[in-house]
Design a protein around this nucleic acid. Structure first.
Lengths: 201, 201
DNA sequence: TAAAAAACTTGAAGTACTTCAAGAAATGAA
DNA sequence: TTCATTTCTTGAAGTACTTCAAGTTTTTTA
């Protein structure tokens, strides 16, 4: 009985289960089923979780660490499309859903721990715990909203404003990630970022 | 009996039901329930479906016509974030979900017909037909994918390339919408668009 | 702890766009 | 069918960035 409580305890303490519980409620037995579909994976700094041209066969929930979603632009320069940290889901949803080649790369910026689920298991999980449809709808909805806000910033702010805005909103993040990645995320050159920071613009 | 068949027929012929059927299957009776939650609304060209500062209380499915999702930038210029045509869903999902003030405007570019559903009805509908959770998840997932692709284009292509790309992909659309809206969607000035079209860049 | 690699800085020169202003063309309204 | 409004065009001048190249600092590796 003590052992069982322990199992339940570790299930409910799991970051993924806690995240799900923010959106929908899950019983202990459902939590256990959910977790049984996931596998923990670790990646080293700079390792790729997905490479351009591959089919994104897995969806990841970040337990620990920071990753980025990037492309190689026409000049061969890496351009960061999105960052992900603890409690974020990350995948190329189009490639994952339609099993088509991805245009994006996903890379660990730090040593990371993620929970992963492949496409087939994901479908099975949703059939077995249909409640999760709502959870994933809400998660994607938030990501989509964030993506729209991002486009709004790109459209309405100058390079310098975008930098200061990000600096105010996520100061710890600016410390955590190389500057050139932030620069490309904000859509300007690393040199220009250097000048902004030095107040030389 | 003939009358009943007729009802079923008009339900299944409805563009929304047909759209839903592309993602999940729906019985005739479910189709009827779904439609009972929606209301048809018509808007005239230039009318606003949502105005910045308001809470987006409705979600729209476009039956006919073309709309745009735009912001007023810091210089008071309207900047198009997104277009919507037949069979697209449109709303500010963040404002709709969390009932917060929207930063966006939604406007009819042509005289339009939409199906609308308010937030409360939407929740009820999902409770009554839980299958739809998956439908909406997939719809939003596609929108999110499109949004990511859009950012990719903004990052990797020059103004001229973005124009030619859009011109190749959606030639009929370029005809349908004023040039200055396309220019702002592609993130350059209407004057520059004019020069691109004239081959004067 | 040294050497190598990665990340950041600086200034000078260049460019892809924007802004402005004025006119022409197309569309809509009476 | 005309007048008013909206949309599109053009050239000249300006600017917010980029690119390049070289040096400095920081981090990683052995």
């Amino acid at each position: 009985m003590g052992f069982l409580f322990y199992i339940i305890y570790i299930c409910l303490m799991n970051p993924l289960i806690q995240h799900i519980q923010k959106f929908i409620s899950l019983s202990e037995s459902e939590a256990k089923i959910v977790l049984s579909y996931f596998e923990q994976e670790n990646f080293k700094k700079k390792q790729l979780l997905l490479e351009e041209g591959q089919i994104s066969n897995k969806q990841y929930f970040i337990l620990k660490g920071c990753i980025r979603f990037y492309i190689n632009n026409s000049k061969g320069v890496e351009q960061t499309m999105q960052f992900g940290i603890e409690n974020w889901w990350i995948t190329d949803y189009l490639s994952f859903q339609y099993q088509t080649a991805s245009h994006f790369n996903i890379q660990a910026i730090e040593n990371i721990e993620v929970l992963s689920i492949d496409r087939k298991s994901f479908d099975e999980l949703l059939d077995q715990v249909p409640k999760l449809e709502r959870y994933f709808r809400l998660v994607i909805q938030k990501s989509f909203g964030a993506s729209q806000v991002r486009i709004r910033y790109l459209f309405t702010m100058s390079a310098e404003e975008r930098f200061h805005h990000m600096n105010n909103m996520f100061p710890e993040f600016i410390q955590r990630v190389p500057q050139y990645m932030i620069a490309s995320y904000l859509d300007f050159s690393p040199e220009f970022m250097s000048k902004i920071r030095a107040g030389k613009v």
